[in-house]
Design a protein around this nucleic acid. Structure first.
Lengths: 340, 340
DNA sequence: TTGTAAGCGTTATCAT
DNA sequence: ATGATAACGCTTACAA
């Protein structure tokens, strides 16, 4: 079992360089020689040594997926598993591998960052769900590491893939408004993440464009977790909305729980719509009307953009925005007109 | 900004090897020299080049987490995110990195395997939830790659970390039996995974040890997904059990849905107990009485066992079995005695 | 205690 | 079209 180029070369009766050329599909090799070498390779079960190759090419074919652990709901929210899956598949398709980094504490953030990026083990990085001011972003920028953010960054030159949160939210809100609702509340997402900001912005704009005044009592803040959705709904009930836009499905699950405990029926007593369309959204009672977000596609696009960046650096900032889709299920109903 | 040992060496006025010794904490370096070198390192912002180092040490400090994609419920079941998180944290704690591999199709299985393990980019591998006959296991065994399986393997010499599924199930069943239930059904897990097998075995043993005959009509097969739990419960209802042991929380969520649709109340009409204690188990209606499985600890132990194996190979097979714990919530109640 | 020098397994440059 | 040979940046005998 040949372990090195040299051995394969001896087997094929050629030089090490020729074998290297064959493996890397270089044009200048005679067809016969090429076949000869391939035979030796197959016969000996030889595999090139990726590390040695990386040392000279300066490429590892590994990209990192970094998830800042600000994200406490990592375990319950299927957003991340789906993202991970999409990214892994896209990587494999292009011959890359995915390295996973979760920054547990901000203490080891620095350390992991150093050990990973600056040690040159990564060709590039995908950053998922970073808070707006995450220092990771500036580190990457400073060090010139190719990276793509999933979710837009306020920093202009950061490459990103995102969904149209503002537009998606407006669709959901439009739906509620068309159903006759006027007193619409919202359980917003984290204000330090663009996803949270944009969905709240969409909420405000939808009201504005329909001439409905914004009532700050109808806005409560969550953090995308189920429990924050439950607490949020409990607070929101005091303002007596007839419908609520919840900024994520997980929070909607919590909201649903709060409503059940309060003895309110959905959608008879109150309408609910949310954002994400995770698998669970169709399994709740009632199934959720929600804005579908193509998480897997986002991940794949992020990877592809990153590989582009790695292979052809230096073009302008890429800021991809994917469209969303309103999935109508059973959590919304017409507002019965009290004063006709 | 020094990029190589050589440059740091020049800066500190010593040789390259001395710098290397300092970085690697070798004893034979004079304290002054050591300090001198550290200063040069800090001053120059030097970071060792991991790839170059790996080429000579034959270690990458990277371990792989391989999840055979037989696992269709990867996205919905929080088992995997929790496992991933546990593994990542343990890795970071020991200065390792985690590379993620999901085998989408069995087609690329081979390819990814080659490109990963045989290319020597991984020091070892953690295999999660492999089916009993997964060819991955035999490949790893054949190639002598250090690896640990999460979940026991039927192959004796495979190192593994698992929970006591049989014992845990017996606890859950004992609880139901103590509550007076005799006609207890089960929605079993995948028969091709040891977790499924063991939980079914626990079910049978519990009945046996209490002198209750096994009624095959009370056993239906699921695959750990929510939808299979729902379908399973629908089938099971025909056999009219007064209680059911469901082999996973996700399936129990499905079962709960089936019961709600059938107009049955839990626990008044039928008692339910399951396995895993994922976060969702406490959020269902009613909250689930379930067997807690320390997923994060399992992952951490798997990593630690693997690192052991990598650093000190050749000891006997390690087969760790962690205890479980019965978490009593509100999904079980006394069987009211119909014929006293 | 420190320095010199020989690899590690590739790719890439330059002759031939 | 092919073969020497010099990197790549590090660790590690072996010498001094």
């Amino acid at each position: 079992m040949a372990r090195t180029l040299e051995e394969v070369a001896r087997l094929a009766g050629v030089s090490r360089s020729t074998v290297s050329r064959v493996i890397n599909d270089h044009p200048n090799v005679r067809a016969e020689t090429r076949e000869l070498v391939w035979e030796a390779i197959r016969g000996s079960g030889y595999r090139p040594h990726a590390v040695a190759r990386s040392l000279v090419t300066k490429r590892t074919q590994i990209v990192g997926m970094v998830i800042p652990e600000v994200v406490t709901n990592l375990f319950t929210d299927p957003f991340f598993p789906i993202l991970l899956r999409g990214a892994t598949e896209a990587c494999n398709e292009h011959g890359y591998q995915l390295m996973l980094s979760l920054f547990s504490s901000s203490a080891d953030r620095q350390e992991i960052y150093q050990g990973l990026v600056r040690n040159a083990y990564l060709d590039g990085v995908i950053v998922a769900s970073a808070a707006v001011e995450d220092p990771l972003i500036s580190d990457l920028l400073r060090d010139g590491v190719p990276f793509v953010s999933v979710g837009r960054s306020p920093i202009e030159r950061v490459h990103s893939v995102d969904v149209d949160s503002v537009g998606g939210t407006q669709m959901a809100m439009g739906h509620l408004i068309r159903l006759g609702h006027r007193r619409i509340g919202t359980i917003a997402g984290r204000p330090d993440m663009t996803a949270g900001q944009d969905r709240l912005e969409g909420y405000r704009r939808a009201l504005g464009s329909h001439g409905i005044a914004v009532d700050e009592d109808l806005i409560v803040e969550g953090d995308f977790t189920e429990s924050s959705g439950m607490a949020g709904m409990q607070r929101l009930l005091r303002a007596e909305p007839s419908a609520v836009f919840v900024a994520s499905d997980m929070m909607a699950v919590g909201a649903l729980r709060a409503l059940r405990q309060a003895g309110l029926r959905v959608p008879e007593d109150i309408s609910l719509t949310s954002f994400d369309d995770i698998p669970m959204a169709s399994a709740t009672e009632p199934p959720l009307t929600t804005v579908r977000q193509p998480i897997g596609r986002m991940a794949a696009l992020a990877v592809e953009t990153l590989l582009d960046l790695i292979e052809a650096p230096g073009s302008g900032p890429r800021r991809i925005v994917l469209p969303t889709e309103l999935v109508i299920r059973e959590s919304c109903s017409k507002k019965e007109v009290v004063n006709p």
